[in-house]
Design a protein around this nucleic acid. Structure first.
Length: 382
DNA sequence: TCTGGGGTCCTAGGACCC
DNA sequence: TCTGGGGTCCTAGGACCC
């Protein structure tokens, strides 16, 4: 019996949930994102496989997606529905023995000891399908990186396995974008260094990579290219380090008074709705995206002597004062940096007790999640 | 064809201190 | 009369992920 790590990734998750209640849309190009109106500001969260064949992918502006795929059905995000479905999936996964780490709405790692991980993966797929009607792909690896990478090759609905032997056979000829941690920017920079494939990256000079990407990221990229990863599968989500809310306006704001007003509204929502109970806000970060698309941040400390709501509002205004509001504003965001769990005095005790009472299978949108953020955007565009 | 929202981590550069 | 070197902390920005 040996240790394996499985990564379950739900196929076209948001679309999959929508199809459960609109089965008549099955087989059609379906695009979920924004408020479902492709003439308004917003991006594609998930596109069905049919829509992907038209070149529609995650992160693409909805207007753009409509151009590419005029026949597509556009649906608004329904976070509540996805949270419910995700919870159902995670509960099903938790029935299997092992360490379960929920890695997002549509992803989870399971570390487990078995002689036959493939058949375990098939059983999981079957049970998830029975319970939820949703299809998933499962990657199997000796570590999280291998499992995560493998799941891509299993899509949709399949099982794929990588290990130290198969990694170079499968990966060396692949483009570096297949690796976790390499997005468009790093791929571009690597290409400028003459590195386009995973194999080339695995054999690249570490000093060169450190110069290009920094002392931590450079060497880490090469390790990733070799399929090496020693991060642990952890069932306990770490305490959140920050919480926030941001909004892109359908039309840009130009009046400073209105900008202030919208900022204060966001600050109030952060204080009242997204700040985890019992947590301590240390700083407020205000984000402003000006038209056309330049983004800046400023921050200000939260006065611990004042009530959180007023203190956060005051800090937000103070941070806003760091901006020249001489250009139209298309986005405003307010985020609070939270005091580290267990870092200080009496109030903190309440908080860590509250954290321990978190359910094992968290609600979506709950502050528990691990290193990955909130929304499900992320299915690869194929 | 204009480009969401929620997060995490890393880096560069300046301030400050010894 | 033109200046060191290291460490730490902070801020703003960037890249990435889901």
């Amino acid at each position: 019996v040996s240790r394996h790590i499985l990564l379950l990734d739900l196929d076209q998750f948001l679309v999959g949930v929508e199809l459960l209640r609109r089965p008549e849309l099955r087989g059609r190009p379906v695009i979920v994102g924004g408020d479902g109106d492709p003439s308004r500001r917003g991006v594609v969260a998930t596109a069905s496989y049919e829509a992907r064949r038209h070149g529609v992918g995650s992160g693409m502006p909805l207007r753009f997606a409509r151009r590419r795929c005029p026949d597509a059905v556009f649906l608004p995000l329904d976070r509540q529905a996805y949270a419910v479905a995700s919870e159902q999936v995670m509960r099903t996964l938790a029935e299997f023995p092992g360490v379960l780490e929920i890695a997002g709405w549509d992803e989870a790692f399971l570390q487990t000891d078995t002689d036959d991980p493939e058949s375990l993966a098939r059983r999981i797929q079957q049970r998830v399908a029975e319970r939820t009607g949703l299809s998933c792909s499962i990657g199997i690896g000796e570590n999280k990186l291998q499992a995560k990478t493998a799941s891509d090759f299993g899509k949709p609905g399949g099982v794929f396995r990588l290990d130290a032997i198969r990694w170079p056979q499968v990966m060396d000829g692949q483009g570096v974008r297949k690796l976790w941690g390499i997005g468009p920017q790093r791929a571009q920079l690597l290409a400028e260094l003459g590195i386009r494939t995973v194999g080339q990256l695995a054999r690249a000079d570490e000093t060169l990579l450190a110069e290009a990407f920094g002392p931590t990221i450079g060497p880490a990229l090469r390790q990733a290219a070799r399929g090496i990863d020693d991060s642990a599968v952890r069932s306990q989500a770490p305490a959140p380090k920050s919480r926030g809310r941001e909004v892109t306006f359908q039309s840009d704001l130009v009046e400073p008074a209105e900008i202030r007003e919208r900022l204060l509204r966001l600050a109030g929502e952060v204080a009242m709705e997204v700040l985890p109970a019992g947590s301590t806000a240390r700083r407020v970060v205000v984000k402003v995206r000006f038209a056309p698309f330049t983004t800046h941040e400023h921050r200000a400390p939260v006065d611990p002597a004042r009530a959180p709501r007023e203190a956060i509002a005051a800090a937000a205004l103070q941070a806003l004062a760091g901006f020249d509001l001489d250009r139209p504003v298309r986005l405003l965001g307010v985020r609070v940096d939270l005091a580290p769990d267990g870092s200080a005095g009496g109030e903190r005790v309440e908080r860590s007790q509250a954290a321990q009472q978190e359910p094992r299978v968290p609600e979506r949108d709950a502050p528990d999640r691990l290193g990955f953020g909130g929304e499900p955007g992320g299915e690869p565009a194929q």
